[in-house]
Design a binder for these strands. Structure first.
Lengths: 250, 250
DNA sequence: CGACGCTTTGAGGAGATTCAAGACACGTGG
DNA sequence: CCACGTGTCTTGAATCTCCTCAAAGCGTCG
């Protein structure tokens, strides 16, 4: 089963206490004792195939989910059915907060590749709140940091398309690094379309800029495989590019 | 002191239990008993003059704040000192969540007019978590609904400038209505500049569109005083206007 | 009543979009 | 193992919406 665990040869149950994501996932910062309690409530080793939904907008709040492997896109649909990519979630990150306020999800979470995840059911969250206040606080913090991330994303929307793409690449790189993956070379699991949607630019523009970066020797791109060749200049571009005023459209 | 309270002639202390905002503020959905406990921890009747800051980005987390009167803008500063208006907060709404994740605010809250607010200090939040788990959950819900609101705002960024302004007006109207204020006629406490910044468009564009709406008899604007004359058409504009692709800048 | 800041209005320019078409990649089946 | 087809990605050209710059109008506050 738990093939991701280093100790999986012996059938040791992987709990939150010995999870290899321990310092990234929910338990981060929790006292040992509370990690144990959390472990009893979490459902582990759930799978979802590429293209499948972990939860749908409008469905009852499933709970908080921690990605162990694979990546996910979080999308919201407007009244006309247009899709908005709200976020990408990488291994070690949490999702599900969009359902907590109203006990009903208002985003849909779709696997960009086969994913394996842990799941803290909605019903257990309130139980935990009484038994392990520390956990409750961690959840609150995580939720607020989602808000912080949104603020960052909004700031990005004031910049030029170039800067957005540069920032996007650097952001993915950083997050992968935090999780112990290679930071200079990785695979973009999402399509150009999804990147553009996320960044608020047309997919053709994403493509143009990615290749512009390649022409300038900042990156090397081959299909979805990306290699960062000049991180500094990429960062300068992101930090320096003439602040872009408001946005526009057709 | 507490001049906002209906019972203020007699010096009855206004607590969360008898606050006229009770159903809008933190206690919403809390059992009576817990409201009482909350009341003991909240600091009431704090003031802040127009232009003053309730808290600054970078300063230690102050806690959660509930606006009793007046309005506030929540701004974030980028590395170059450019200001981004993240949100406007109206009476009865909460702010401060931007400081919870890291125990340090990453936004600045500035009064757009003289404000009166209640204040649940940061240090008390963890105390409450252990004593009144219900409150803890309410905070988590509120925090997540902030996230939901951000998603809504992002969706708005895909639309044309017209639609954004229409949505902005309707959104303010709705929120005022919820708080029992007039929904069809009110004062915009923020400048065109701030509206534009918030919506991601130039202030000149805001001005042009507002007057375009007036020419079409959708609204009546006089300085900051706004009157909605044709809510339906305004809504149609917001809902129908050709979806606007991504954004651009200079 | 004067000064300052906010708002309005105009003209020109620029970045990103849209539409269209071709290249490429991948998975399927012969 | 290679041909084929679908979907993704790339590239080009024309267009558009909104921005920027500039200046005048208005309101407000001391």
């Amino acid at each position: 089963m738990i093939s991701l665990s280093p100790a999986s040869t012996i059938k040791t149950a992987v709990t939150c206490a010995n999870c290899n994501l321990d310092n990234l996932c929910i338990p981060k910062g929790l006292p040992r004792s509370e990690v144990g309690e959390l472990g009893l409530l979490v459902s582990r080793n759930n799978m979802c195939q590429k293209g499948g939904a972990i939860y749908h907008a409008g469905s009852p709040f499933r709970g908080i989910i921690a990605l162990r492997s694979g990546s996910v896109k979080l999308v919201s649909l407007d009244s006309e059915g247009n899709e908005l990519v709200v976020d990408f979630i990488l291994p070690g990150e949490l999702l599900g907060f969009d359902g907590l306020a109203n006990d009903r999800h208002n985003c849909t979470a779709i696997a960009l590749e086969t994913v394996n995840y842990c799941h803290l059911p909605a019903a257990k969250i309130e139980i935990l709140a009484t038994q392990t206040p520390g956990l409750s606080h961690v959840l609150l913090q995580r939720s607020c940091s989602q808000f912080d991330a949104q603020v960052q994303k909004m700031m990005l929307h004031r910049r030029s398309a170039d800067a957005r793409v540069a920032c996007f690449i650097l952001h993915i790189s950083d997050r992968l690094k935090q999780r112990g993956y290679a930071e200079m070379e990785f695979r973009l699991s999402m399509s150009r379309e999804e990147i553009g949607n996320y960044l608020g630019i047309a997919h053709e523009t994403v493509s143009r800029i990615i290749h512009l970066f390649q022409d300038r020797d900042l990156i090397e791109i081959k299909s979805k495989q990306l290699k960062i060749k000049n991180k500094k200049e990429l960062f300068d571009l992101f930090a320096t590019t003439t602040p872009n005023s408001p946005s526009q459209g057709t």
